[in-house]
Amino acid sequence: MIDLLNFHIIPGLVLGSIYALGAIGVSLVFGILRFANFAHGDTMTLGTYITYTFIHLTPLYGIVALPLALLIAVPAAMIATGLIVLIIDRLFYRPFRNSPVIIVVIASFGMMLMIRSSIEMIWGPQLKAMITGIQPPWFFFDTIRVLPKHVAILIAALVLMGIIHYLLSHTKIGKAMRAMADSPDLARVTGIDTERVVKATWMIGTALAVAAGVFLALDGQMKPLMGFSVLLAVFASAILGGIGRPYGAMAGGLVIGVAEELSTYPWIGDGPLLSPGYKAGVSFAIMVAMLIWRPNGLFKGKVF
């Protein structure tokens, strides 16, 4: 039974909080700009590679240990990646602000491929590792084992979600974002600078994406496809939570992450309930089921 906690629930929560961070960005962009941003996964990848560059190509890593280096490099990468995304928005999305949604969705699909190819051109298609070697787990009560990096990821994700909550509920820009998500025209009439809200949305969504990407790299490895490979789960999380609702996205991410891991626990008999080969199908199945029976998601009230 302890295996359930060690190998299914804890990794599920770690994965889920990464999905949640990604899903908040997708949800915010959908709420404010009203399109599904396919490039979000590759924004994660880009942010991770920029973080990697800040750590390994500056003297930073030589001077301080990795955790501290990350604390400096990640915020810097958030800003750098956010600026790149703002430029992308100005050049590729803004001209389509008043066009049919499908056009800007396809534009984001194109950006997805362009970002990925640029990463392959600049950093190469090879595998990279944010940290190398094996990290032994911490033991609690002799049976519960937790990897230190997992503790760090969970704490950091919670802190980031707390900051997002504060931003959305207590700051002027956060309130403006919520107003614009509810009704863009009304928001404009009341004097809200919509382009400023759009910029804030991109910066916040991208910052969370960078964090999610770095956590992914810490838990696994860095490669140009890393962000794209979680994009489906991120979309599923956003839909589960109710698209356009950041709190829903947080809950949705955790549910999807844990559900994926629990699907392979041997609930009946000795073998896994679901062959791990089909694990990726779990988030798909949840997404399809939600779209059929509850297209508004779990959090359809006026949470946002």
């Binding site: 190998f7 990794p11 599920g12 994965l15 392979t264 062959s275 791990p276 080969g277 089909y278």
Partner: peptide, 21 residues
Amino acid sequence: GSQMHEPEKQSYRSELSTLSG
């Protein structure tokens, strides 16, 4: 025990824990 797994996942802990039994 023999299990197929899906590539490109972030973690294989759950699969491996079942296999190691």
